[in-house]
Design a protein around this nucleic acid. Structure first.
Length: 353
DNA sequence: TAACCGTGGCC
DNA sequence: TGGCCAAGGTT
């Protein structure tokens, strides 16, 4: 299909999105920030976070100079927290090694933390007019349908074929505006017309040539991910309360919820009671309503337990421990707290007298 | 190469 | 209700 890019650009200019908060700018900082937040995350989820970040960190220098904990607190609830750490590191590299200006080439961008091949192409095309293709979930779905690419896109062989195909479709002799419209068109077309459930083939500019449409295989393309049963883990969380404050522990930088502040955990009931005593609570440990949190690759059953701190021990319990903090329930916004833990504590606050 | 890494919306 | 997955990158 020699005119794929021309048709897509025309579609984008008439039917695509043109007023998202990170559009209508060529500021690499704003574009980069949006692209990192949008990794595996839907537009509607990102919008409020994007506004918060821009208000607090108006440029890359402000972000680079911020404490890591502040960045994590602002990111809390958005998920995939490695993105937040890499965002912070990337800002510091841009300031420290690039004089505060993002590099303009795909290759240099892709060397920065948190920026892979697709994100580098998005930034380079939007900010610098580079002729480089993205390959995200939208593009993979569109290519699989229009060109009849078989096989699960998680397989290396299939993904390599997709990259090659995507490269071959780039517009030649394109202006900066064309490049920008093309990249945005790939995203918008997949996100709004060639959607997973019910693609709007009647309004599709590729309908007559689309393999999936012509053969009626919209539901078979792209190939579904092989099913896997997700394991269930179980953990006990300690809500150690002192008046209106609870104790939080900073989690290790890697692993689930890396770098966030969460409740102290234990592997069983007895171990949790022991931890409560260690922290200075010798009274009853009472159960709170259990909750289940579903991650991408496992399910987590949480057994929360409430304990009261012995009178006057609060200041001692956290002394000299930088990974422990007492936080008022009304001050959780200034700490990066995992979403289900935040939900649990918000419910607790409402129930306290 | 494949597993790991969050959360919320949709049907 | 539960399966599926979204503007992917890192290890």
């Amino acid at each position: 299909m020699p005119d794929f890019s021309a048709r897509l650009i025309a579609w984008q200019r008439r039917h695509g999105r043109h007023d998202l908060p990170w559009q209508n700018t060529r500021d690499p900082y704003r574009i980069w920030l949006s692209e990192i937040m949008l990794q595996q995350t839907q537009v509607s989820t990102v919008i409020p976070y994007y506004a918060k970040f821009l208000a607090r960190f108006p440029d890359v220098a402000a972000l680079a100079a911020a404490p890591a904990d502040d960045v994590m607190a602002l990111w809390a609830g958005l998920g995939y927290y490695t993105r937040a750490r890499n965002l912070h590191r990337c800002a510091q590299v841009v300031v420290g090694q690039h004089g505060g200006a993002f590099p303009a080439s795909v290759e240099q961008l892709a060397e920065l933390p948190g920026i892979g091949r697709s994100t580098a192409a998005a930034i380079a095309s939007f900010a610098f007019g580079a002729r480089a293709t993205i390959l995200d979930g939208n593009v993979k779905r569109v290519l699989a349908r229009v060109f009849g690419v078989e096989g699960f896109q998680g397989e290396k062989k299939v993904e390599n074929a997709m990259w090659t195909l995507a490269e071959s479709l780039l517009p030649s002799n394109a202006s900066d505006d064309d490049v920008s419209s093309y990249t945005q068109g790939l995203m918008d077309f997949g996100a709004t017309l060639c959607v997973r459930g019910k693609p709007d083939c009647l309004r599709c500019p590729f309908a007559a040539d689309c393999v999936a449409n012509v053969t009626g295989r919209q539901r078979e393309l792209p190939a579904a991910r092989p099913k896997k049963t997700v394991p269930t883990r179980r953990t006990w969380m300690l809500v150690l309360r002192d008046g209106n404050a609870v104790m939080l522990e900073k989690r290790p930088p890697s692993g689930i919820w890396g770098g966030l502040w969460s409740l102290p955990e234990a592997a069983d009931e007895a171990a949790l009671a022991e931890r409560a005593r260690t922290f200075g609570s010798h009274g009853a440990v009472s159960p709170l309503a259990p909750l289940t949190h579903v991650f991408t690759h496992f399910k987590l059953d949480i057994e929360p337990r409430l304990a009261e701190l012995d009178r006057g021990v609060g200041a001692l319990a956290a002394l000299g421990d930088a990974d422990t903090a007492w936080v008022a329930l009304g001050d959780l916004d200034s700490f990066g707290v995992p979403a289900p833990v935040r939900k649990l504590l918000d419910g607790l606050q409402g129930s306290l007298i």
